[in-house]
């Protein structure tokens, strides 16, 4: 924050590191499990280190077809995030900054569409997809995800647009930009932190979604969460916690890397620069 004393700053950094460690503790534990032999996972008392093994990473990598399913997950998550971001951000902008009758009602309806319990949606969606011959295809899963991502995007972006100074687009429009020009050239760049954060959230939600992926896919479009649920559901031979933890680690990595890469767009001052300019 602004005007931090040296001490306050150190305390805040210390607090941030501590909070991160607390939140990451279960994850660190998961990474630990992923390198253990099955017999060493449930030791009494708990042991941190034991015989190291990479079997958990190799054994199920092929069996659960991790690689193709990872590709599927990337396609579905990216596709649904992009479609939702475009549709949602435009709608959020219209609801925040444009003159229209019933903007409030519309915003409410879009939001309320998210209130439908997922279990009520998945069966009819499957029936429609089957009718149209679209089961087990990316487009079906992407569209299903878009329905639950769009309301979130609309709402989050509405809030971020709202905190942008009005003068921004006024200036742009006075300069001869149309509505679209003002939106894409001025508003979007200025709300980049909000857009990126919302997009990360969309990707994460699509990344870990299970129920829809499970029902709407059979083989070609199966995503990682379905593969994980499959490993977890082995109630024949014994819990497969090693492989589960390993696949858990593997699925987390791409998202963390993605987040690290886009961090550089999460910089402060874009809106500042624009208003001052």
């Amino acid at each position: 924050m602004v005007s931090s004393g040296r001490l306050g700053r150190a305390a805040a950094i210390g607090g941030a590191i501590l909070a991160t460690l607390v939140f990451l503790f279960p994850v660190i534990y998961m990474v630990g499990i992923s390198f253990k032999l099955p017999r060493d996972i449930f030791t009494v008392p708990p042991r941190w280190f034991s015989e190291l093994t990479f079997d958990n990473y190799t054994s199920y990598f092929h069996q659960a077809r991790i690689l193709p399913r990872m590709v599927n997950t990337v396609i579905v998550a990216a596709g649904s995030a992009i479609v939702s971001m475009v549709a949602g951000a435009m709608a959020g902008y219209a609801l925040t900054r444009m003159r229209m009758r019933g903007a409030g009602v519309m915003a409410g309806v879009i939001l309320a569409s998210r209130a439908v319990p997922p279990i009520a949606l998945v069966v009819p969606m499957f029936l429609v997809a089957r009718r149209l011959g679209l089961t087990d295809q990316y487009i079906t899963v992407i569209l299903a995800y878009v329905t639950f991502l769009v309301p979130y995007v609309v709402w989050l972006m509405r809030a971020f647009f709202r905190s942008l100074p009005k003068e921004l687009e006024e200036a742009a429009m006075l300069d001869g930009c149309g509505r679209f020009g003002a939106f894409f050239r001025i508003i979007v760049p200025c709300s980049l932190p909000g857009l990126i954060s919302t997009m990360i959230y969309c990707i994460i939600l699509a990344w870990e979604e299970l129920l829809f992926a499970l029902i709407l896919t059979n083989d070609k479009a199966v995503t990682i969460p379905v593969a994980i649920a499959g490993i977890a559901a082995d109630t024949e031979n014994g819990g497969l916690w090693g492989p589960l933890a390993a696949v858990g680690v593997l699925t987390v990595l791409p998202v963390v890397i993605f987040a690290l890469v886009v961090q550089k767009y999460l910089v402060k001052g874009l809106a500042d620069g624009a208003t001052k300019g």
Partner: peptide, 16 residues
């Protein structure tokens, strides 16, 4: 070709 479904949802999926 053998497709697998997680146990919890297998009954509903099979019926569908």
């Amino acid at each position: 070709t053998v497709d697998g479904v997680p146990y919890n949802d297998q009954l509903a999926k099979s019926m569908l």
